[in-house]
Amino acid sequence: TLFEALYDYEARTEDDLSFHKGEKFQILNSSEGDWWEVRSLTTGETGYIPSPYLA
């Protein structure tokens, strides 16, 4: 399933992933509550992002 970022986000820890509004992601793991592990389709990087920032 693909999701798109609604807002920009700046990583706060080394496990987080910074991203920009409009960036698209593949969800790798959504079992961690509000923090999902994703792969950016723009950069190929993986990390955790806050799920409320996605649509």
Rank of each mutant, 00 (worst) to 15 (best):
residue 1 T to R: 12
residue 1 T to C: 14
residue 1 T to G: 09
residue 1 T to I: 11
residue 2 L to K: 03
residue 3 F to Q: 02
residue 4 E to C: 13
residue 4 E to G: 14
residue 4 E to V: 14
residue 4 E to L: 10
residue 4 E to F: 12
residue 5 A to D: 15
residue 6 L to K: 11
residue 6 L to V: 06
residue 7 Y to K: 05
residue 8 D to L: 05
residue 9 Y to P: 00
residue 9 Y to S: 02
residue 10 E to S: 09
residue 11 A to T: 03
residue 11 A to E: 01
residue 11 A to Q: 08
residue 11 A to N: 03
residue 12 R to F: 07
residue 12 R to G: 07
residue 12 R to W: 13
residue 13 T to H: 13
residue 13 T to V: 08
residue 13 T to E: 07
residue 14 E to N: 12
residue 14 E to C: 11
residue 14 E to Q: 11
residue 15 D to P: 05
residue 15 D to T: 13
residue 15 D to V: 12
residue 15 D to I: 13
residue 16 D to R: 14
residue 16 D to P: 02
residue 16 D to Q: 15
residue 16 D to F: 14
residue 17 L to W: 05
residue 17 L to P: 02
residue 19 F to Q: 01
residue 20 H to F: 12
residue 20 H to A: 10
residue 21 K to H: 03
residue 21 K to W: 04
residue 21 K to D: 02
residue 22 G to M: 15
residue 22 G to A: 02
residue 23 E to P: 01
residue 24 K to L: 15
residue 24 K to P: 03
residue 24 K to S: 04
residue 24 K to G: 02
residue 25 F to C: 01
residue 25 F to M: 02
residue 25 F to W: 02
residue 25 F to Q: 00
residue 26 Q to I: 15
residue 26 Q to G: 01
residue 26 Q to E: 14
residue 27 I to K: 04
residue 27 I to N: 00
residue 27 I to E: 10
residue 27 I to L: 11
residue 28 L to D: 00
residue 28 L to I: 10
residue 28 L to Y: 13
residue 28 L to N: 01
residue 29 N to V: 06
residue 29 N to D: 10
residue 29 N to E: 04
residue 29 N to F: 05
residue 29 N to M: 05
residue 29 N to G: 09
residue 29 N to S: 13
residue 30 S to I: 11
residue 30 S to V: 10
residue 30 S to Y: 14
residue 31 S to R: 10
residue 32 E to A: 12
residue 33 G to V: 09
residue 34 D to A: 09
residue 34 D to K: 12
residue 34 D to Y: 15
residue 34 D to E: 10
residue 34 D to Q: 09
residue 34 D to W: 13
residue 35 W to R: 14
residue 35 W to T: 14
residue 35 W to V: 07
residue 35 W to P: 02
residue 36 W to Q: 00
residue 36 W to R: 00
residue 37 E to W: 15
residue 38 V to E: 00
residue 38 V to S: 00
residue 38 V to D: 01
residue 38 V to Y: 02
residue 39 R to F: 06
residue 39 R to S: 02
residue 40 S to N: 14
residue 40 S to L: 05
residue 41 L to K: 01
residue 41 L to C: 11
residue 41 L to Y: 04
residue 42 T to F: 08
residue 42 T to V: 09
residue 42 T to E: 14
residue 43 T to F: 13
residue 43 T to Q: 02
residue 43 T to V: 00
residue 44 G to H: 04
residue 44 G to N: 06
residue 44 G to P: 00
residue 44 G to K: 01
residue 45 E to I: 09
residue 46 T to V: 13
residue 46 T to I: 11
residue 46 T to M: 06
residue 46 T to S: 06
residue 46 T to A: 04
residue 46 T to H: 07
residue 47 G to M: 07
residue 47 G to Y: 07
residue 47 G to C: 09
residue 47 G to N: 01
residue 48 Y to V: 06
residue 48 Y to R: 13
residue 49 I to P: 00
residue 49 I to K: 15
residue 49 I to C: 05
residue 49 I to Y: 00
residue 50 P to I: 04
residue 50 P to Q: 08
residue 51 S to D: 03
residue 51 S to Y: 09
residue 52 P to G: 15
residue 52 P to M: 15
residue 52 P to I: 15
residue 52 P to C: 15
residue 54 L to P: 05
residue 54 L to I: 09
residue 54 L to H: 07
residue 54 L to W: 09
residue 54 L to Q: 07
residue 55 A to H: 11
residue 55 A to W: 10
